[in-house]
């Protein structure tokens, strides 16, 4: 996983609440292998309507944007990690919102995408910020937990564990393997404590 420390890019305002993972990637695209790239499927149905807020994804003003600003409960619903694949493959490295679906946020971190929690008032301010809306640069410093637009600076929240993981680009599995002894001890103890827990053989 690529470490994430600083992000400096245009940011796309998406003033919608409850953008669920079904909208982030409609189910019909999920049969495809990841190697084909999921970017074109991001917000596919919403983005296709020219009047939609999501049409900004394809507007030259926001070309190359790595930051998405949105409203509460982003990524709610289905656990499909394909929603994060679509965001990451499109080029997003950071999502700013007042709240995220729990599973989505966890999936994001595992793919090196920062789910930064900002205050509801800050979200509204950023969504209406002239610099943001005209495709100006937004700076995000993960170590300092700061977002800067022009002279305007706001803070954001992130689980400390996720922050460390993103800053270092760490992967869980290698760390877990170093616990193999503890896992084996647990399994031996547990077989005595809960003899009924294993599926019964018929």
């Amino acid at each position: 996983m690529t470490p994430l420390t600083l992000v400096e890019s245009r940011a796309i305002p998406l003033p919608l609440a409850n953008v669920d993972t079904d909208q982030l990637i409609p189910a019909r695209f999920m049969k495809r292998p990841r190697s084909e790239g999921y970017g074109p499927f991001l917000l596919h149905d919403l983005r296709a309507e020219p009047a939609s807020e999501a049409a900004r994804l394809d507007h030259p003003t926001f070309a190359g944007a790595q930051i998405l600003i949105t409203r509460r409960n982003f990524g709610s619903g289905s656990s499909r990690e394909a929603a994060v694949y679509a965001l990451a493959d499109f080029g997003f490295r950071c999502i700013l919102a007042p709240s995220f679906g729990d599973i989505f946020a966890s999936n994001a971190v595992k793919n090196g995408v920062l789910p930064a929690i900002i205050a509801e008032a800050d979200a509204e301010a950023l969504l209406n910020n002239e610099t943001v809306r005209s495709g100006g640069a937004v700076h995000i410093d993960l170590a300092q937990q700061i977002i800067r637009v022009g002279n305007h600076t706001i803070g954001f929240e992130i689980e400390p564990v996720w922050k460390t993981q993103l800053l270092n680009g760490w992967d869980d599995i290698d760390m877990t393997r170093s616990y193999s002894g503890a896992i084996a001890d647990f399994v031996a103890r547990d077989a005595q404590a809960r003899p009924w827990a294993a599926p019964s053989r018929r």
Binding site: S79, R80, E81, A82, V84, I103, F104, S106, N107, K110, N111, E159, V161, D172, I173, M175, T176, R177, Y179, I183
Partner: peptide, 20 residues
Amino acid sequence: FGIGASEVAHVMMTQTLWQK
């Protein structure tokens, strides 16, 4: 509880998950 594909892979390989 529901998990994403990376966590599914983690459970496949270790039968464990890191959780808060």
